[in-house]
Amino acid sequence: MFEARRRWQRVVLQIVLTLLVLPYLFPLIVMVQGSFAGQGWTNFKDVLAVPGFWRFFLNSAVIAAGVIALVYVVTMLGAYGFSKLRVRFRELYFWMLLACLTLPEVVLLTPLFITGIKVGFYNTYWAVILPLAALQVPFAVLLTRNYINGVPDQLFEAMRVDGANAVGVFRYLVIPLTRPIAAAVVIFTLIGAWNDYLMPLVFLTSQKMQTITLVPSFFTGEFNDDQTKILASAVMTAIPEVVAYLCLQRQFERGLTAGAIK
């Protein structure tokens, strides 16, 4: 975009860009450097030696998988219904769903907290999966419905004429066609579920059930505020996220673009 025909202009652009990006790199350097401070690799060994360290990853993975599966199924069915099927008061239902879009999760805190105590919701995966999925669904349905709206009705009619019922249309037309938008839905649901802090903080009080976002606070207690080990644990919990992003870079970016441009 910036016109840079001459060599020195290109060098200037490159320098400006590098200076701009340095502050973004800095906290990452602090994190990695801090994790090696003092005893070097021993910090990592100590973190790994903490019994049940892998449980945090397992719990996060189970919760993320649960939220993704639930959101995916509910969204695909709902988006197809909202887009191409006849439903009485369809727009009313859709608006009821959309009204939940701007809802901050903390608003759900009080009733979930109270109900949680009553029904023994505490320290179960469901306590986190259900509210997180409920909060992701409106946006996912909005996106997917817009996407299916863009598919010409004739395609659906043609399948009907060939004798397919709604289930057949869903299975052989909707599912394959919505793959790109489904990838976007999966990615932002993954980021949302994996990185969520509030719900696990409130509902997963038993250490066996806790997720990776609770690791820093856990280690603050475990290592008596030993910064190097806390940072080592932060590095280890960050690695899977960075690797996932690097492998699926394009999907991540497309997921976000699809999310906001509609």
Partner: peptide, 25 residues
């Protein structure tokens, strides 16, 4: 056919849980 069964899971999960919570709050 009616699309209600298709949108029902989304409504139950989302509207059900969230509106229940709002009412309770």
């Amino acid at each position: 056919s009616s699309g209600l069964p298709w949108i029902l899971p989304a409504l139950v999960l989302c509207v059900g849980l969230i509106y229940y919570c709002i009412g309770d709050t």
